[in-house]
Amino acid sequence: MHIPDGFLDLSISTIMFLLVIPFWIFSIKGVRSVLSDKQVPLMATLTAMFFAAQMMNYPIIGGTTAHLLGGPILAITLGPYAGLISMTIILFIQALFFGDGGLITFGANVWNMGVIGVFIPYLVFIIFMKIMRNKKGMLIGAFLGAFLGDVLAAIFAGLELGLSTINFPYNVQIAVMAMGVHHSVIGIGEGIATVMILSILLSKRSDLLQLQKMAPRWLPSIDLRGSK
């Protein structure tokens, strides 16, 4: 889903940058108020781990493979603010060292995978937690969140590509269709993987999920250990 430089128009890229900047500012403020020195190296090693995780492929329908995007699990374990910062750093290093993504399209990529891909799963997850208040609700929330986050991110990517009428040769319909259909399949894989990782973490090291407190203040904080 990484959009390389040269796919998007300059105007679309600029708009996406402007959209992402407030989220960055809020995240930095949010993280700074709750983050101790200790958590910076911690977030960094976890970011490195998700970087490695993005290179592991798993099979999906019909011979194609997908890899974990990591957005949903980052959102659930680190909270959306720290999740966005981690995702931003992953995307930055990918763009610079693998040519996967770009400098000008960086804003668009962060919007798709960092903002949509982290905040949407988190919101869905929180809503399900509030409604069902048990482990089942949490897992359903994690699955739906991961699925929706992935599909929405793909649709946004399709929109950005399609609206770039100067540089991208296909129109909105084709771009959104191609991205949406492809990623609704990948999204199911992402959902299943997220649920499995979450349930393993819950049973093995549920103390790790306390990092949740990095969530925005207006969202209700939930003690994940209580819902086991």
Partner: peptide
């Protein structure tokens, strides 16, 4: 894969 990833996470 999920169990590998959670081990990696921990």
């Amino acid at each position: 894969l999920a169990s590998m990833l959670s081990t990696l996470f921990i």
